[in-house]
Design a protein around this nucleic acid. Structure first.
Length: 275
DNA sequence: CGTTACGA
DNA sequence: TCGTAACGG
């Protein structure tokens, strides 16, 4: 489940064909951006050295607002037309995942406090990131900021990624943008990752900076390259585990792909695994 | 994350 | 002008 890192959904990056693109490739295009994913990213990363988020004079967290303001400005400057899609009510079968994440966050919060008290900034930052949670008026404030900036905001009835995917399938947007791969499972024909303009990421080890370019994933091409259907992709996700189910221990995307290709569908795979 | 300051 | 560190309250 990997918070600060980025991916919370099914990590299909290992098996899916991904292509680096330039921002100029997206000029004039409408992009349906997963707002919650973006918000979490900002809350996670925009922090001070010991992990403390940016706060205003009232003590309210402002990291997400800083992020939305500058990133949206930059996207507009690149000629991109962002549309932010916010989550609605999560499906009930996601409850277990939500509860688990809540626990992980609370635990991280404790570890953050401890590390901060010991003066271990690097350790503190790591746990602070994992403790990131949406709270208070963050959603309303982000929506208001986008509204006054003249950026369209869409309220999904449930999962934002599902809504964003639907918008792309309807041809109302060119692509869905998220760090997760789940939009592919919802059928988004094109998914974009790393939609950050400055695109510089600290590499895990030292203070080495690597240029990160936007990444385009074409659902049809990716499926064709793997030689599977979209239904089979969903089966792979189910084997690996999603926000909605646990998956099977010891099976990652690679093994799941092999198994699904060999047996055609998840039922046959499960039968084989039983024996 | 994205901007700003600053030394090379 | 560029690269890195510090800042953002």
């Amino acid at each position: 489940m990997n918070f600060g890192g980025a991916i919370m959904g099914v990590d299909l990056g290992d098996i899916f064909e991904r292509n680096e693109i330039e921002f100029s490739d997206l000029k004039g295009k409408v992009i349906a951006i997963d707002a919650y994913n973006t918000l979490y990213q900002f809350l996670s990363i925009i922090r001070q050295r010991d992990g403390t988020p940016l706060i205003d004079s009232h003590g309210e967290i402002t990291s997400h607002l800083s992020g939305f303001l500058y990133r949206t400005t930059n996207l507009i400057e690149e000629g991109i037309k962002p549309v932010f899609v916010f989550d609605g009510v999560p499906p009930e079968f996601k409850n277990k995942t939500i509860e688990e994440r809540k626990k992980i966050r609370a635990n991280a919060q404790e570890k953050w406090d401890e590390a901060k008290a010991r003066g271990e900034d690097k350790e503190a930052f790591k746990h602070a990131q994992a403790s990131s949670r949406i709270q208070g008026n963050m959603i309303e404030d982000a929506k208001l900021l986008l509204k006054v900036m003249g950026i369209p905001v869409i309220q999904a009835p449930s999962e934002g990624e599902a809504q964003a995917s639907s918008i792309v399938m309807d041809g109302k947007a060119y692509a869905a943008a998220s760090q997760d791969y789940d939009a592919l499972l919802f059928g988004a024909p094109v998914v974009l990752r790393n939609l950050a303009v400055t695109g510089k990421r600290k590499l895990a080890g030292k203070s080495i900076f690597v240029e990160v370019k936007p990444e385009l994933i074409d659902l049809k091409k990716g499926l064709a390259a793997m030689g599977i259907s979209r239904e089979q992709l969903v089966d792979i996700a189910l084997l690996v585990g999603t926000d909605y189910n646990d998956g099977i221990k010891g099976i990652g995307p690679r093994k799941a792909l092999k198994l699904i290709k060999k047996h055609t569908g998840i039922e046959a795979v499960l039968l084989e695994l039983k024996t």
